[in-house]
C-alpha cells in the first residue's frame, strides 16, 4: 500500500509538471523557454526513472546502464552543435 500511495504521488507530480511546462510555453520565449521546457522534461523523466523504473531499488551497475545512454547522447549533441555554432 505504501508503494501505491507513492506511485500516485509521483503521478500527481508528473501531471503538475506537465501543467507547468504548458503554462511556461505561453510565458517564456527563446532560449529561456527551451531551457525551462527541457528542464521540466528532465525532471519528469527523472521521476519516472527513479520511481516507476525501479532505479531507487537497483544497484549501481543497473543505474549506470539505464542512464549511460542518455549521457552518451551528450557527446553527439555537444559536438554536432559545436560544429554548427562555430561555422
Amino acid at each position: 500500500m505504501q508503494k501505491t500511495v507513492s506511485f500516485v504521488f509521483v503521478w500527481f507530480a508528473l501531471v503538475l509538471l506537465l501543467a507547468a511546462t504548458v503554462t511556461a510555453s505561453f510565458m517564456l520565449k527563446g532560449p529561456a523557454g527551451l531551457a525551462v521546457s527541457l528542464g521540466i522534461a528532465f525532471g519528469k523523466s527523472g521521476l519516472i526513472y527513479w520511481h516507476y523504473m525501479h532505479l531507487n531499488e537497483e544497484e549501481g551497475l543497473q543505474r549506470i546502464a539505464a542512464l549511460g545512454a542518455g549521457a552518451w547522447l551528450l557527446i553527439l549533441f555537444a559536438f554536432v552543435c559545436a560544429d554548427y555554432l562555430t561555422r
Binding site: 559536438f79 559545436a82 560544429d83 561555422r87
Partner: peptide, 10 residues
C-alpha cells in the same frame, strides 16, 4: 565543410 574549429578539435 564543417567548421574549422570543429575540425581542429576532432
Amino acid at each position: 565543410g564543417q567548421s574549422m574549429y570543429a575540425s581542429a578539435v576532432f
